[in-house]
């Protein structure tokens, strides 16, 4: 059966209103402060180390993002942890708060479809995230130019831009998850806790669980090379279920073309025979992480679709 009229009529209006709400909210202020302080801290801590390698490394600028200085983790590792929190905080109360404020039935009685409400809210969240991350990205680059005294090359700029896009896609996955929970749970607290539980699971426990699972699925025999390789590959495959892993691999490939970012799997000595040493060109790096990036997009589309279907089937009355 067909419905008449555009499913997206009003989505722009919803988006603009939500965007204004997001940008003006206290919650967002606090998160911005948090990520700017950690970003600045991470960059400042690594700058001394990076400065020593100027002239040796063709991608010295990207080092700012990836090198860690004890006790602080690298900027990329910080983002891997903080982006989910920002994304979750933007999405966990998207739908259920409308029910709690009793505005849902009144808004849906206006000439718009439910689709417009969900799309508008998601787009607003994603736009907020993109604006925040872009601001942070520019801030870090500016800080690096200031502290290093040299500008990034074209390739470095492009690579860091690719990284920014991957970071937004990574945030999109977490926001879609938080929105799914905001549809599934009427209580905002439950939705927030459920989202954070999933985040915690992937950020800290998944790597441990993968180790156990690998032992079960392909037990390693120290005298069998093929068995060892398959154990490592099982571990990688399972690990890539986690969006955190996909993000860190994408970050590695984009920001570290020189060494570890040349291959995301295992490299056997035979494979390296006759290999030309030197950094990977950007196009090759892109080809390398294409599965990771599409994996993130697929996760995001899947979660959003589930949320969409659930929302369409939900009863309006509270």
């Amino acid at each position: 059966m067909r419905r008449e009229g555009s499913a997206l009529a009003g989505a722009g209006t919803v988006m603009m209103k939500e965007l204004a709400d997001n940008l003006a909210s206290t919650r967002m202020r606090l998160l911005e402060i948090l990520i700017f302080i950690t970003g600045a801290g991470a960059v400042y801590a690594t700058i001394g180390q990076v400065r020593d390698t100027i002239g040796e490394d063709p991608f010295v600028f990207l080092r700012i993002f990836t090198s860690a200085q004890d006790p602080l983790p690298s900027f990329v590792a910080f983002l891997g942890l903080l982006i989910p929190i920002v994304a979750i905080s933007l999405g966990f109360d998207a739908i259920n708060s409308e029910f709690n404020r009793k505005t849902m039935s009144r808004i849906l009685a206006q000439p718009i479809y439910r689709d417009a409400l969900l799309f508008g809210k998601f787009m607003a969240g994603l736009a907020t995230l993109a604006v925040t991350l872009a601001a942070l990205w520019l801030f870090v680059i500016g800080l690096a130019i200031f502290l290093l005294g040299l500008p990034p090359s074209t390739e470095e700029s492009l690579r860091s831009l690719c990284f920014l896009i991957a970071a937004i896609a990574y945030g999109g996955v977490w926001m879609a998850l938080a929105m799914l929970f905001s549809v599934a749970f009427r209580s905002t607290a439950t939705a927030a806790l459920a989202s954070l539980a999933v985040w915690l699971f992937f950020a800290f426990f998944w790597t441990m669980i993968v180790k156990i699972l690998v032992q079960v699925i392909s037990p390693a025999d120290p005298y069998d090379v093929a068995g060892l390789i398959s154990a490592v590959e099982t571990g990688l495959g399972l690990g890539r279920i986690s969006p955190n892993m996909l993000f860190s691999e994408a970050a590695l490939a984009f920001l570290n073309p020189g060494e570890r970012g040349q291959s995301l799997g295992i490299l056997l000595p035979q494979q390296l025979q006759g290999a030309i040493s030197g950094p990977l060109p950007l196009a090759e790096s892109l080809a390398l992480v294409w599965p990771q990036v599409t994996g993130l997009l697929a996760g995001f589309i899947l979660l959003f679709t589930i949320a969409y279907i659930m929302f369409q089937r939900q009863e309006v009355r509270a």
Binding site: R3, E4, K102, T103, R106, A109, P111, I112, Y113
Partner: peptide
């Protein structure tokens, strides 16, 4: 069911617990 936008354009609704 099929033309909800046309209906909602002409009908004003005040739910039992109205929220803003």
């Amino acid at each position: 069911l099929r033309q909800p936008l046309e209906v909602k354009r002409r009908v004003g609704y005040m739910p039992d617990q109205v929220g803003f």
